[in-house]
Design a protein around this nucleic acid. Sequence first.
DNA 1: GATTGGCACTCGGTACAATCGAGTGCCAGG
DNA 2: CCTGGCACTCGATTGTACCGAGTGCCAATC
Lengths: 333, 333
Amino acid sequence: MLDERKAAILRTVVEEYIETAQPVGSAHVAQATSLSVSSATVRNEMAVLEHEGYLVQPHTSAGRIPTDKGYRFFVDHLTEPGVLGPAQVQRVRDFFDRAHGELERMLHDTSRLLSSVTDYAAVVVSPPHEAAVIRSAQLVRLAPRVALVVVVLGNGVVEKRTVDLDEGVDDASLGAASAHLATQLVGSTLAQPATPVSSGDAVTDGVVAAAVAALADDDDDGPDQVFMGGVARMASAFDGVETVRKVVGILEQQYVVVSLLRDVLDRGLSVAIGSEHGLEQLSTCAVVVAPYEVEGRVSGAVGVLGPTRMNYPQALAAVAMVSQRLGRRLSEG
Amino acid sequence: MLDERKAAILRTVVEEYIETAQPVGSAHVAQATSLSVSSATVRNEMAVLEHEGYLVQPHTSAGRIPTDKGYRFFVDHLTEPGVLGPAQVQRVRDFFDRAHGELERMLHDTSRLLSSVTDYAAVVVSPPHEAAVIRSAQLVRLAPRVALVVVVLGNGVVEKRTVDLDEGVDDASLGAASAHLATQLVGSTLAQPATPVSSGDAVTDGVVAAAVAALADDDDDGPDQVFMGGVARMASAFDGVETVRKVVGILEQQYVVVSLLRDVLDRGLSVAIGSEHGLEQLSTCAVVVAPYEVEGRVSGAVGVLGPTRMNYPQALAAVAMVSQRLGRRLSEG
DNA sequence: GATTGGCACTCGGTACAATCGAGTGCCAGG
DNA sequence: CCTGGCACTCGATTGTACCGAGTGCCAATC
């Protein structure tokens, strides 16, 4: 690993660069760090750090900039979360004390909160619907040959799908099918739909089968929903219009964002920096993620997306706090 | 108004500037326009056009660029919609031939289609839910003292609100209330809820009243939903990061976009250019809007948002075609 | 009287050189 | 091993000259 002094130097370079966005020179470091050494010594150390891949120079005779690896070392060994201004803490507290209304609206507002606290773009992934218990299921006629199957889940989410009906399914049959569907589905989950028991009536069975099939394929918005806030802040975080376009383009493809977060969590990480996640277009971005638990089970995730030179301690603290509070809030119903 | 020649000159300036984004000089105009006059004559005319507010010079001794007023004259008198590449036409046709699934998903996809056809950001405003006929209403318990009122509308939209229950509303009471609610609401609209008739049971009446009240206030996402596509394209349309930030910031506040579109339509316009809509942050943008009709009634709107130097003929044609096709598609259920 | 060619003038953009200064790498001495 | 010193690099800034696109105006022309 890195010895004490190199670590300290790397730390100040990262911190300085995060703050100023300017390459950091040896003199600055020598003066800013607590260990009292000359700039020449710092230069030697920085040359080593560059050789080992923690720093780069944008061009000869400029200061140094951290690489992805440098940021990685920083977040892993040189910082611990926990520093969040009291004002910010208060805002998060207030938000969750006052939060109310539909699940979707709350998650959306949460993303805006997280964005405004961190000043980066924020993402909230909703709990997967598959896991929730079905509280109600019914069929509603929309048109002569089209019905809507509506399922209400225990967490307040409503899933719906259109179902094409065969000719000559009259209101009575539809009502029977609706009732039968309810008896079949209520209490189970979307992930494991109870195997439909025949009702003894062919028409009913057909409609129910179609409804269950419609519920099974979730091309709706992918398996789970995602809410985003503060996308505009990404524009301030970069200077090239082209970079902004790429990033916003990615954010528009919500399923990419979901799988990005899931991927990071699956690898047991809470931070992914630059090239660590595979997305070319986000090579100058970093994500900070935290899962949240509802009633003791991991259900979704919150995260922020910013430039690689983001304020990691703050972002980690904010994400941790919001995910924890959100989980708690959702657990109490 | 403008005489024949001034109009022709204005037209070529606008068209040229839209294409090249560069100030247009008198020589270019003299050579590109059909009327054969010298550049000196064009200069004189352009000086007048500038005096009357149709053109401006970014600085002395540069070419001219159109003002908002110039664009306005262009769209009002110098162009008619109708030119849409056959390939684009085909794409729109194909889309609506294949379109299926939930209303929301379809509208979202429509916004992406429109964006990709025009290469600007696109907006689709859903039909207001108030107008749709209620097909089903029910109450579902989520927690001991919380229920969800779920209303299915004729157009396939599902509205839902949480309702806080008084102590001691048991499942039987809730079931009764749900049934009573259904008899009260089915067939009416959210805009004019039938005045609740007493069921004779105090608990039932209380729950029903709470449910109706919850449905009445629509803080959900405002009165109607909005879907956007191609936001990232706005980044390519401008060169300053700051401008992009402002525009994306506005787009994130969806209700602002809705009221912008509504405002434009209410004024009987289909195009609003730069300062014509009141939004400071969109002063370098133009919107092109068209309402769409479902079953003969205006229900929603589609629009595109781009820089003031947008391709108006193309945008007008695309918006017109998409709105018309969308209306037709929604009318047939 | 409208149009036009001609001409002086303006002013942004580019090219180039000079200079500055921040920062480095290296080395010799403590 | 650390440090002061020094030569060197290279981006950024400044200044100057100049080119060229484009204008406004005017006298000549049709």
